[in-house]
Structures are given as C-alpha cells and as structure tokens.
Design a protein around this nucleic acid. Structure first.
Lengths: 228, 228
DNA sequence: ACACCATATATTCTCAAAAATTTCATATAA
DNA sequence: TTATATGAAATTTTTGAGAATATATGGTGT
C-alpha cells in the first residue's frame, strides 16, 4: 500500500477509522462543494465545534489540505480556504488536459480485458445516471459527479503510474470545485461528450480519444468561466 | 501569498519561524539526502528526540510529507519513509519530462527581459560551480544540486502557472532523491547538457530546448537506474 | 514443533491546556 | 487629524499526557 491518504472513493464516505481521516474527508468535501466558501477563514475554535475534532487533529488535516492546494496557510495567521480565480481555473484545466491525456494514451496502450470491463461498467453507471438527471437537485448532482469521476478514473487507471494517478486525482478535485461553484447545467452536452469519449477509448483510438477529452475539458472550462 | 508551504529555496535553510516549518524542512532534507533511508520506520518517540519537536508538531509535518509522497502512512501503524523502486523512478522521470517540457514551452513564449536575465544569472552560478567540482565532496554536491534546481526553475518560471510550478517542485525533489541515492558522478556530461539547454532557451528555440531537456532527464534516469 | 489465546509492552492517535503571536480597541502625543 | 504606543482579547502554535490500537511475549493444549 502506498499510503493511507489515497482515497478509494472520491467524494463518498470511506470506512473512516481515524478521526483525522474522517475530518479530512469532510473538510475536503465541504470545500469542493462550497459549504466552506473560497477565502473563508478557518478558525480552529470554530472548526473544533463543527467537526468534533481537537486542535491538533484539525491541524493535521489542514496541513494535508494545504499541501494539496485546497487550503492556504499564512505563517502565524492560520488557515483559510484557497481562493478561486479565473487564472487558477485556467491553470488547472490546462494541467488536467496535459496529465489526463498523457495518462489516457498510456492506458489505451496497456489496458487489458479487465480494464475494458471496468471502463464499460463505469460508463454504464454514469450514462444511466445522466439519463435520469435532467435538471437535478443537489443530491443527484453529487452522485452524478461521483460517477463522472469514476468514469474518468477508469479510463486512465491502466496508465501504470501511481504518481500520475495521484496528481490527477488532486487536480480533478480542484476542477470539480469550480464546476460546483457555478453549478449550471451542462448535462446534455457532457452526456454526449462522455459517450464519444467512451467509444473512442474502447476502440483504442488514442488520437481521437485525447482530442475528445481535451474538448470535453475545454468546454467545461469555457462554460464555467462564462458563469463566474 | 499562496501558502506558507511553498519553499523559496529548495534545499537550504529558509527563515524558519515556526517549529513545524523547521521540522518539515529538516525531515524533507534528510529523506532526500538519504539520512533517513527508504522504508525506514518513522517512530514518533525517536523523531521527538532527533528533531526536538512534540508529537503533534511532528504529525503535522509527517502529514504534509505524506501528501507530497516523501512519507507513507499506514492507518494506526504510523509513518515510514516512502520506499524507492525502479518503477517509481521511471514514473517520476516521465512525469518530470511531461511537466517540465510543457512549462518550458510556455516560459519561452512568455519570458521577458527580466526572465532572461534571471536564467543567465542562474546558469552562471551553476556553470561556475560545475567547473570547480570535478569529483566533489558531499558539501559541494549539495550546493551544486541547489544551483541545478535554481537553473531548472529559472527556465520554467515564466510559465505563468503557480499550480504547475508547485507540482514540478515536488517532482524535482523526488527525482533528486534518486540521484543522491546512487551518487555517482555525471558532472561533465550534465555540464554540457546544461550548456546546450541554456543556449537553446535564450535563443527561444522551444523545439530544441524541450528535446535537450528530455534527453537531459532521460540520461539522468538511465544513469541512475544503472547504479541502482 | 505448531497453532491458539491471554497478557504485557510498545506505538499511534487524540485531546485539553499552556506558551507565543497576532489582532483589536483605546489612549496619548505630534 | 494622523500616527504611534499600550494593553486586552482573540488566535495560532506547541507541548505533554491519556486513550485507543497494534505488536510482542509467554503459556497452554494438541
């Protein structure tokens, strides 16, 4: 095992053994889903009540989140939710394209039958959900985004690079925060993009797949920028 | 300011205000430079004596290092220095090529006169040091690696992406750990590679520069793998 | 010898309070 | 008024100790 910090499921509730891990998951979720607003001060005393954890435990998780970029820290002045900006979103989208396309190429080369089955399964879950949610409520959107994540992850999982998958997971989370921030519906377009991407991947057409993926991310970027 | 975790200098001793930051820098340094061996258990009680910090403070820094990948953690079983492997080194080298070449291209497009002067200064420091160190002792190697880092950083600094620079810095540190691990001399070859890279960068020849950078990293990779 | 269980030791995880630092409000002087 | 100094309150940082968990030890039965 590489470390305890790697999350098996992206948004959901893993078997939280330690208080620190549970707090980490909750804080991360609350930042991504906007319950903790960008730029908001994260006072330890307040967090203590809200998350039922001691100062030390909270500082552990805040340090983790700072390393990942969800939280910012100022020496002797505590922690605050990392701010958002169009420039930051641009950086993240471009990095996601760079890493995810590279991972996708590798994955298309290496993926075996198990991988293909995994992709098909993830796509099935995603597309069924997308078919149902036409103008979703918040609860639906969360499961939709979970399946969206699992689909994208399944595509690149065979890239044979733990380091790459780790970096990508963090990046995906940051990108997701911006999507949730504007929270306007792009479901029908995204649905078609996912379909095309899925088909190109199964056909092992790396060229088409990376182009579709780039478009998929770029479309999301411009859409999000529009509503920011 | 983005956060307190971003390091101004890579290996050196920044103005350490807090105990946590000082401990973080020292631990990171000791892992990269092999004082803490790959796979070694990081017992809190032992670290407490060695680094003169309390358990909670240590756990903060260990969590940071875990997020960055220098330390691994197992639930309820504590922390240990992340192991090394040929596969891991391969991943890191390839990711470094991917990110650093992309950053270099952006930087060559955006870099202004100040950037050029910065690159020239960093190259000057590096090449003077390389000229002196023929078969260096450990102290020399550390400054050499510091200047090596500053040169590579200067090249990509104008890439206009804080996120990219952050990811690259972590990756560079991991790559460096492997170089220190084998610690055999590749100075003369590296010296020529740096020279060619510098000249291509100043000439704004993105194509040549990225090729040279890729070769530079790949050569380091094969050299390191050979002695592992 | 080997597996299994109880007990003791070692280690991690969590907490609450003390120490250090910043922030805020008020007063004083230029 | 503006700036600077002073003291109180709020906040962060750091510590050491207790609770929870894992590991090692030794005994018992087969």
């Amino acid at each position: 095992m590489r470390n305890t910090h790697g999350k098996l499921n992206f948004l959901g509730s893993a078997p939280h053994n330690t208080v620190a891990n549970a707090t980490y998951e909750r804080l991360r979720h609350d930042i991504i889903f906007g319950k903790l607003k960008p730029g908001a001060k994260l006072k330890l005393e307040t967090l203590k009540d809200e998350y039922a954890a001691s100062v030390s435990t909270l500082r552990e998780t805040l340090n983790r989140l700072t390393s990942e970029g969800f939280v910012s820290a100022a020496e002797q002045r505590g922690f605050f939710v990392s701010p958002v900006s169009a420039a930051d979103l641009n950086e993240i989208a471009n990095l996601r394209i760079l890493l995810e396309c590279y991972a996708l190429e590798e994955s298309l080369q290496n993926g075996d039958d198990d991988w293909e089955a995994d992709v098909a399964g993830a796509y099935h879950k995603l597309s069924s959900t997308e078919a149902v949610i036409k103008n979703g409520n918040d609860a639906d959107i969360e499961t939709w985004k979970e399946y969206d994540w699992q689909f994208h992850l399944s595509l690149i999982r065979a890239c044979n690079s733990t380091n790459l998958l780790g970096l990508h997971a963090t990046l995906f989370g940051k990108y997701l925060r911006y999507q949730i921030l504007v929270l306007t519906y792009r479901g029908e377009v995204a649905r078609q993009e996912h379909k095309a991407l899925f088909e190109a991947a199964i056909a092992r057409d790396a060229n088409a797949a990376t182009k579709l993926l780039t478009q998929h991310i770029m479309n999301g970027l411009t859409h999000t920028l529009e509503y920011m």
